[in-house]
Amino acid sequence: MSSESQKTHLPSLLSFLLLLLSSLPKLASPSSSDSFVYGGCSQQKFIPNSPFQSNLNSLLTSLVNSAYFSSYNNFTITASDPASPVSGLFQCGGDLDQSDCAECVQHSVSQLGILCLYSAGGTLQFQGCFVKYDNTIFLGVEDKTLVLKECGISAGYGTDLLSRRDEVLTGLGCGSGLFRVGVSGYVQGMAQCVGDLDSGQCSDCLLEAIERLRGGCGAAVSGDIYLGKCYVRFSAGGVSTKAHNQQEKNSEAGKIVAIIIGLLAGVGLIIVFLSFLRKVFEGTKGEEVSSSEKEDDQTNTKGLQKKEGKVFEGTKGEEVSSSKSPSKKEDDQTNTKDLQKKKRKGV
C-alpha cells in the first residue's frame, strides 16, 4: 500500500467511524428534565420569510420568555398577518422548579426549529416539559390520542405489586388538579394534564390513560403512557420505565463504543505495520539501487580508461611514423644523386 493510498483511505475511515459514533444513543442522565420522550411535525409546510413565519417566531419567543415566570402558558399570534395565525403553549412538569422549567422550554423550542423546519405545526415532549404549536385550533380541545406507551420488565404475578399499582392508579384518577401524585408502599405514581384543559377534561383524559396502562403493562414494575393532552406513569422501587430503558440503551451504547474503540486500535496497528513494511522495503530497494549504481560507475570508469589508453597509443604511433618519414626522404634523395653521378662517369 502506498503512502498516497493510506492518506486517501484513512480520512474516509475516520469520517465513517466518527459518523457512527455520532449516531449512538445519547449517554444522558435518565432523570434529566430535557431527555427526549417523543416529537412530531405536521405535514403542512409554510413559505420561508412569510407572515406566518414571522408570527411563529414571535410565538416561540413568547413561550421561552414566559417560562421564566410560570410553569404553563399559551399564546395566539396574529401580528404580522391576521390571516396567518399560529397558536402555541408550553407545560412544565409539576415537580420541576422554575429555572429548570425555563431551561427545558428553551431547549425544546430550539430543537423544534430543527425537528420541524418549515412545518406549520410541531410537538415536542421532554421528560420535564411539553411544547406545542400549530396553525389549527387546538387550545382547550381535548385530545386522548395514544402517542406513546412504554412498560418495564415483568415482576410476575406472585407479589403484591399489582394491588399496590392499582391503588396508586385509582388515586390518580380520582384526584383533583392538573398535576397529581400517589404512593402505595414501594409503588409511586404521577399524572398531569396540559394546562389548557379544564378539570373535567383532565379527569376524562387521565382515566383513559390509566385504563390503557393497566391493560397494556400487565405485571410490569413500571409504565408510562402519553396521550395527546395528558400522561400517567408509575414505578416500583423508584425504578421508572424511562430510567430502565435508558440504562439498557446506555449499556448497548457502551458495548458499541468498546467495539469501535477496538476497531480503531486494530486499524491503527495495521496502518503502523504497513507503514513500517513500506519503509523497510524502500530502504532495501534503495540499497540495491545504490550498489548497482556503484558497479555501473566502476565499469564505466574502466571502459573509459581503456579507450583513453588506445587513443594514447594511436597518437604515439602517428608521431613515430611522422618522425621517421623525413629521414627516409633524405636517404632517397642521396641515393638518387649517387646514381646520377655513376651514370655520368660511365658516359
Score class of each variant (00 low, 15 high):
139 L>I: 15
31 S>N: 10
61 T>C: 02
156 G>C: 10
253 A>R: 06
147 V>Q: 15
128 G>L: 07
227 L>I: 07
236 A>P: 03
126 F>K: 03
167 E>C: 05
171 G>E: 09
297 D>L: 15
35 S>Y: 03
176 S>G: 12
271 I>Y: 14
246 Q>R: 06
338 D>L: 14
347 V>C: 11
63 L>A: 06
318 E>I: 10
158 G>V: 06
160 D>H: 04
308 E>D: 08
211 E>M: 09
224 D>L: 15
305 Q>G: 03
94 G>R: 08
14 L>W: 07
16 F>E: 10
110 S>W: 04
202 C>M: 04
87 S>M: 05
108 S>R: 03
288 E>T: 08
74 N>E: 15
294 K>Q: 13
95 D>H: 13
194 V>P: 02
110 S>R: 12
267 V>Q: 08
189 G>P: 07
71 S>V: 14
139 L>G: 02
34 D>P: 02
62 S>R: 13
337 K>W: 04
255 K>T: 08
7 K>Q: 14
251 S>P: 01
227 L>P: 10
33 S>A: 14
71 S>Y: 14
29 S>T: 06
251 S>Y: 11
24 L>H: 05
309 G>P: 00
214 R>F: 02
295 E>N: 11
259 I>A: 11
48 P>W: 00
3 S>N: 10
116 C>T: 11
173 G>T: 11
94 G>L: 10
303 G>V: 09
57 N>P: 01
22 S>I: 01
20 L>C: 05
91 Q>L: 01
61 T>V: 07
339 L>K: 14
191 A>C: 03
199 S>P: 01
237 G>F: 06
169 L>P: 03
60 L>G: 08
84 S>Y: 00
117 L>M: 04
70 S>G: 12
36 F>E: 05
329 K>D: 09
149 K>D: 04
316 K>H: 10
346 G>K: 12
32 S>L: 13
304 L>K: 12
280 V>G: 03
4 E>A: 15
38 Y>P: 00
309 G>N: 08
65 N>K: 13
293 E>A: 15
234 F>P: 02
330 E>I: 11
287 E>P: 00
221 V>Q: 13
120 A>L: 05
293 E>F: 10
107 H>W: 05
82 P>K: 01
139 L>F: 07
293 E>L: 15
11 P>A: 08
72 Y>H: 10
41 C>H: 05
304 L>A: 14
280 V>D: 11
113 G>R: 14
175 G>F: 01
192 Q>G: 05
17 L>P: 04
121 G>K: 07
136 T>R: 04
59 L>Q: 08
